[in-house]
């Protein structure tokens, strides 16, 4: 290689206006990671299908094909492209609608976890002292309550309610988030730029919002991509126990549950939702890995 090709002027041209933030750097690295990029695209496709697919189909998820109240094999003529389930509801429509529910639960519950977790973690880590003690002992306490038990109690108290579902899951998932954010905040707190922020007259709230939260977001985003699949699985598990969404509403978990019962007769009722769900879970995990690599400052 000749050196001439490598070089550009020594002094950076002064009128380079836009800097490249760490976020932009990370995004660039993420796009260069093939597995993560493929995952991102597949997730996009699945989300698009789940959101808009049901409108494009001839059958809706809760519509029973009264002419064929049995498992119909895939048929173009009947517009059951992937066949129907045992009571004659279109499998594709149900899978796509289930995806909508599963993804919604995943995103909203994670959103709840994110909000509570980051707030509690950042406040606890930054303020330290008694506040930290109280908040973290509360987290410890919550950890010791078995998750399913907690969700079941909520369900019993407030009934089976779609919104309650993600509130319940989110309110459990925030514990780990809070601990992660607190740990990050503790290391941040002793960095010089935090001291600089205090010296330049920043109030606690402004320091938390301006310096703490943006700097913990990297780790938080990675954790979010790993939490979403967890929540989707948890929802499936609850649905499996009959605590999840109610018929005729459905989710991937419910579909897999139903499909498993008919595995021997119509394996496709299990396979189709299972493919969607595992693909989603895989993609989120790959994406999380990719994000972690992209955001890892040691790589720079």
């Amino acid at each position: 290689m000749t050196d001439v090709n490598l070089v550009t002027p020594a002094i950076p041209v002064p009128d380079v206006i836009e800097g490249r933030s760490l976020w932009q750097d990370a995004w660039r690295r993420l796009l260069r990671n093939r597995a993560a990029l493929a995952s991102l695209i597949i997730l996009g496709v699945i989300a698009f299908l789940s959101i808009f697919g049901p409108y494009a189909l001839a059958w809706s998820y809760d519509q029973i094909d009264w002419d064929h109240v049995e498992a119909v094999p895939p048929s173009l003529a009947l517009k059951h492209y992937l066949g129907t389930d045992s009571v004659g509801r279109d499998l594709l429509a149900r899978t796509l609608f289930g995806g909508r529910v599963s993804l919604t639960v995943g995103l909203l519950a994670t959103g709840v976890a994110l909000f509570i977790g980051v707030t509690v973690g950042a406040v606890s880590g930054y303020l330290g002292g008694k506040v930290d003690q109280v908040l973290m002992r509360f987290v410890d306490l919550m950890y010791s309550v078995p998750l399913t038990f907690f969700v079941i109690i909520l369900m019993v108290l407030f009934g089976r309610n779609f919104i309650l579902m993600f509130l319940a899951i989110g309110s459990v998932e925030w514990l780990t988030m809070a601990r992660i954010v607190r740990g990050q905040t503790l290391t941040l707190k002793h960095r010089e730029f935090m001291e600089a922020a205090r010296a330049s007259g920043g109030s606690t709230v402004s320091i938390l919002l301006r310096h703490v939260v943006p700097n913990v977001l990297g780790v938080v985003i990675v954790y979010v991509t790993l939490t979403i699949p967890q929540v989707i699985l948890l929802e499936s598990f609850l649905s499996f126990l009959g605590l999840g969404v109610q018929e005729p509403m459905t989710s991937w978990g419910v579909l897999i549950n139903e499909g498993a019962a008919e595995l021997e007769i119509t394996p496709r009722t299990l396979i189709v939702p299972a493919i969607f769900m595992t693909a989603t879970l895989f993609c989120f995990n790959f994406l999380g890995d990719g994000l972690r690599d992209a955001l890892d400052p040691k790589d720079r």
Binding site: D3, V7, P9, A10, I11, P12
Partner: peptide, 18 residues
């Protein structure tokens, strides 16, 4: 004057020239 060299943007000739 100036900054220590950035190895990613070296001038083609003498690196100290700038």
């Amino acid at each position: 004057p100036g900054q220590p060299p950035n190895l990613q943007r070296l001038p083609p000739g003498c690196a100290f020239a700038p």
